[in-house]
């Protein structure tokens, strides 16, 4: 029920909303607006980003389809970097806290968000999770989004960078099939890259060409958590992000509200 505007249509006033508009006693007004539909989410995302910047935390939104190896990549990353950087993870899944438990087993804080039926994280959910994290004591926060190449692309969480995993066991035409997601990527990681040699229907050059067709110069690197080519390129990119001054534009820039 609409609790705020006082104009809920009921049996008593439905006639005002239906039928011949000339019969209405009031006047028609068209309010011209030009506002982003997700402005409320974007305001909270900007607020989250302010928190990250206040504490000097680099926030990375990690997205991919389910099973592309996000959690495994994070486990290996934490093992490689935990002695030098203070890391935490926000985990998004529809159900279970299995992934948060795997991250905690690596000795770093993790907050699990279970979204129920929701197919993506939004800025409000992340904001709530931030209250359970020691932001003041962190250098790097990973937000592992719900495994999904569609919905998470539309919601700014306040992250500084978006990393999208494209797994060697997926089709190399994924960037062409999911242009919104791959356009949002600041880095594309070909995950489980140790399998590229045996997955002969996945052509890394074709995947990169599909990404370029989206008008993107996004770097593409290979990573494998368990075997060569290992994580050198990924860890190198991360170190670069951690030491570089933050000058990355948000996924969805805030737009001024006009008209109202």
């Amino acid at each position: 029920m609409c609790q705020t505007c006082g104009c809920t249509v009921t049996a008593g006033n439905a006639h005002l909303a239906a039928g011949d508009s000339h019969a209405r006693p009031g006047a028609h007004a068209t309010v011209e607006v030009l506002q982003d539909l997700l402005a409320a989410n974007d305001r909270v995302a900007a607020h989250n980003r302010e928190h990250f910047d206040e504490y000097g935390v680099l926030a990375i939104n990690l997205m991919s389809s389910p099973g592309a190896g996000k959690t495994t990549l994070l486990e290996a990353t934490i093992r490689a970097l935990r002695d030098r950087y203070r890391i935490a993870v926000i985990e998004g899944d529809l159900e279970t806290d299995n992934d948060a438990a795997r991250i905690r087993a690596q000795g770093v804080p993790a907050v699990q968000i279970t979204t129920g039926t929701a197919c993506h994280l939004d800025a409000h959910l992340v904001h709530r999770a931030l209250h359970d994290l020691p932001l003041a004591g962190l250098d790097l926060l990973f937000i592992e989004n719900v495994g999904n190449l569609v919905c998470p692309a539309s919601f700014d969480l306040g992250q500084h960078v978006n990393v999208v995993l494209l797994c060697a066991t997926e089709g190399d035409d994924k960037p062409a099939k999911y242009p919104v997601m791959f356009r949002a990527a600041d880095l594309v990681v070909l995950s489980k890259a140790d399998l590229l040699g045996v997955m002969d229907d996945f052509d890394a050059a074709r995947a990169e060409a599909a990404l370029r067709a989206l008008g993107r110069e996004t770097p593409v690197i290979r990573a494998a958590a368990r075997r060569a080519p290992a994580l050198d390129a990924w860890l190198g990119w991360l170190e670069q992000q951690l030491t570089a001054p933050r000058a990355i534009a948000p996924l969805r820039p805030l737009q001024a509200t006009a008209g109202v």
Partner: peptide, 26 residues
């Protein structure tokens, strides 16, 4: 070339709302 920028086509915006406003307020 692929070094392009999207000018139009990635927006998700509310453009206009038509309201029935009472006379006194209108």
């Amino acid at each position: 070339g692929y070094r392009t920028r999207v000018l139009e086509g990635d927006g998700l915006r509310l453009r206009a709302v038509e309201l029935d406003v009472p006379e006194a307020h209108a």
